[in-house]
């Protein structure tokens, strides 16, 4: 069996590639949206820390509204059809000891994912969000399968 390539996704980055990859990332209050195209058997994933870009700093994908839009555009650019795409959402925990906790950032991060995907008409076929634990996920971009376990990090 050929070895599948691995990629570690940092917060604020996006990964989408037509070739099979195992993309892993660790989420606290951050959220990762995995988009999978079962027709072309490929996928992409983002990892954002805040929900909305408010015009300060760079318009980077550390903000949900930018990260989701950019990931979606990347999938289309790779040849996916919007109607084929499926989504999985992870993260958005309210991790204790995190000062951002006060602003329910995890919850808001999830909300933007659900609302934007609804607007884009992309079905959310699985999600595991909220709670008090961080998550580590591994997304197989060829099969669309996500392995997840809870961690005490972030």
């Amino acid at each position: 069996m050929p070895l599948i390539k691995e990629h570690y996704l940092y917060g604020g980055a996006i990964f989408a590639d037509p070739h099979p990859y195992i993309v892993s990332t660790v989420l606290g209050s951050c959220v990762a949206v995995c988009l999978y195209d079962p027709v072309n058997r490929m996928g992409g994933i983002n990892h954002y820390q805040l929900d909305l870009w408010n015009g300060t700093g760079l318009a980077s994908p550390k903000f949900g509204n930018i990260a989701i839009q950019k990931l979606f555009e990347k999938m289309l650019k790779m040849g996916s059809r919007q109607s084929d795409l499926q989504a999985k959402i992870f993260g958005g925990a309210s991790v204790i000891g995190n000062s951002q906790n006060l602003f329910q950032i995890g919850e808001r991060n999830c909300e933007i994912a659900f609302s934007m995907l609804k607007e884009l008409n992309i079905p959310i076929i699985a999600s595991d969000v909220g709670g008090n634990h961080g998550r580590k996920i591994k997304f197989n971009t060829e099969t669309g399968i996500v392995l997840m376990k809870y961690v005490n990090k972030k």
Partner: peptide, 17 residues
């Protein structure tokens, strides 16, 4: 150093989506 090669153990904690 990234713990990239740490594979998921088959404990109860792990889930498949």
């Amino acid at each position: 150093a990234l713990d990239n090669d740490e594979s998921f153990s088959l404990d109860a904690n792990e889930e498949l989506f």
